[in-house]
Simulated assay, not measured.
Amino acid sequence: MSLENIEILKKGLASYGLNPKDEMIDRFVKYREILVEYNKVMNLTAITEEREVFIKHFLDSASIFEKNYIQSGQKIIDVGTGAGFPGIPFKICNPNIELTLLDSLNKRINFLREVCQSIGFNDVEYVHARAEDGAQNKNYREKFDIATARAVANLPVLLELCIPFVKKGGLFICLKGPNAKKEIEDAKNAIKILGVELLEILDVKLPDEELHHNILVFKKLENTDKKYPRKAGTPNRKPL
C-alpha cells in the first residue's frame, strides 16, 4: 500500500466534498485487495494497479458526490454492477444509503457479497438476475429513488433497462465516457418513450487523467409502461 496513492484517494474524495476518514479509506483499500485477489480467477477488471484502481474506479464512481443527488436513506440500485462500480463506492462514501446490487452472473454476486461483508456492510441486497427480468419483478419495479449504471450498454439500452426500477420523480445516474453527448442524441426516442428528462451533464475531472468522463443525471417524470423493459436481449438487439 502506497502512502502517495492513499493521499491521491483522500484528496480526490475531499475535492468532491467528502470527509475521507480512516474508516472510509480502509474500506476502499480492502475493496481493492479483494478485487485483485478475485481477479486472478475471474474476469472482473483490466485495472488492478493500486493507483489506477483508486482513480479510475473509486474516484470515478465517487465523483457524483460533488453534487447533492445522493442522500442518506435513499434506496439505490446498481444495475449490471459487475465488480461493484459505482454502487459499492456510493455505499462507502455514504453508508446510510439502502443499496441493492443487481448482476446476471452468480459468481460476481458471490464476489460482491464477500466485499461488502468484509468491509462491514451487512445490509446490502444482492439480486442475481438480468436487468430485463429484475425490472419486471414487483419487488424491484419502481421501488428505488435512484438507479445507477456504469459502462453497461449504450444509453438507449441503459435507459430501458434502468428507468423501470425508478420511482416516479426519482433519478437515473449514468456514468459515461467521452461520447456521452452523441449517446444523448441517439437516445432522444428512448428519453421520450420512457418519460424522462436530462437534468444535468457533469464533467468528471480525475487526478492525473486526460480521460474525459461524464455523468448523466435523468429525472423520471411518469410511470413506466408495463411493456418496458422488453424481454431479455431485445433492448440490445432493437434499441428504442
Rank of each mutant, 00 (worst) to 15 (best):
Ser63Arg: 12
Pro95Thr: 05
Ala232Ile: 12
Val166Asn: 00
Glu49Arg: 12
Ile215Pro: 00
Met42Glu: 08
Gly170Trp: 00
Ala232Trp: 07
Val217Ile: 14
Cys93Phe: 10
Ile146Ser: 10
Val157Tyr: 03
Asp60Gln: 11
Val152Leu: 15
Met24Arg: 05
Phe58Gln: 11
Lys205Ala: 12
Val124Ser: 01
Ile97Arg: 07
Leu199Arg: 05
Ala46His: 07
Leu194Glu: 04
Phe172Val: 07
Tyr16Pro: 10
Ala147Val: 08
Glu114Met: 07
Val152Asp: 09
Leu216Tyr: 01
Lys168Val: 15
Asp103Leu: 02
Val41Pro: 05
Ile34Gln: 03
Ile6Val: 12
Ile76Val: 15
Glu50Phe: 03
Phe144Gly: 05
Phe172Met: 09
Ile146Glu: 04
Cys162Gln: 00
Phe144Leu: 10
Asp208Tyr: 14
Thr224Ser: 03
Ala190Leu: 09
Ile6Arg: 13
Lys227Asp: 05
Pro95Val: 06
Leu18Trp: 09
Leu101Glu: 03
Leu112Arg: 01
Asp208Ser: 14
Glu33Tyr: 05
Val41Asn: 13
Gln136Phe: 00
Asn43Cys: 09
Ile76Gly: 06
Glu7His: 11
Lys168Thr: 15
Ala129Ser: 15
Arg108Leu: 09
Lys192Trp: 06
Leu18Gly: 09
Ile76Phe: 06
Lys238Thr: 13
Lys219His: 10
Leu59Ala: 13
Gly233Val: 06
Lys107Asp: 02
Val152Thr: 08
Pro229Arg: 03
Lys238Pro: 00
Leu171Met: 07
Lys192Pro: 01
Gly73Pro: 12
Pro239Asn: 04
Leu221Ala: 08
Thr148Leu: 10
His213Thr: 06
Tyr31Gly: 04
Phe172Tyr: 11
Ala187Leu: 08
Leu206Ile: 11
Gly195Leu: 01
Leu161Asn: 01
Asp208Cys: 08
Asp133Phe: 07
Ala135Asn: 04
Glu197Asp: 13
Leu99Ala: 08
Leu171Gly: 01
Lys176Arg: 13
Lys182His: 11
Lys226Glu: 14
Val217Tyr: 04
Asp22Glu: 15
Asn68Gln: 10
Phe111Ile: 08
Lys168Cys: 13
Glu98Gly: 00
Pro95Ile: 02
Asp225Asn: 14
Val196Tyr: 03
Leu198Gly: 02
Ile70Thr: 02
Tyr69Phe: 15
Met1His: 13
Asn106Ala: 09
Gly120Val: 01
Gly84Pro: 07
Ile184Phe: 10
Ile119Tyr: 00
Glu33Met: 06
Asn189Val: 13
Ile109Glu: 00
His128Gln: 14
Val166Leu: 03
Leu102Thr: 01
Glu7Asp: 14
Ile25Tyr: 02
Asn137Ser: 12
Asp60Asn: 15
Met1Gln: 12
Asp60Thr: 11
Asp26Leu: 13
Leu202Met: 15
Leu202Gly: 00
Ala151His: 06
Ile92Met: 04
Asp203Trp: 09
Asn94Thr: 12
Asn5Val: 08
Tyr140Asp: 02
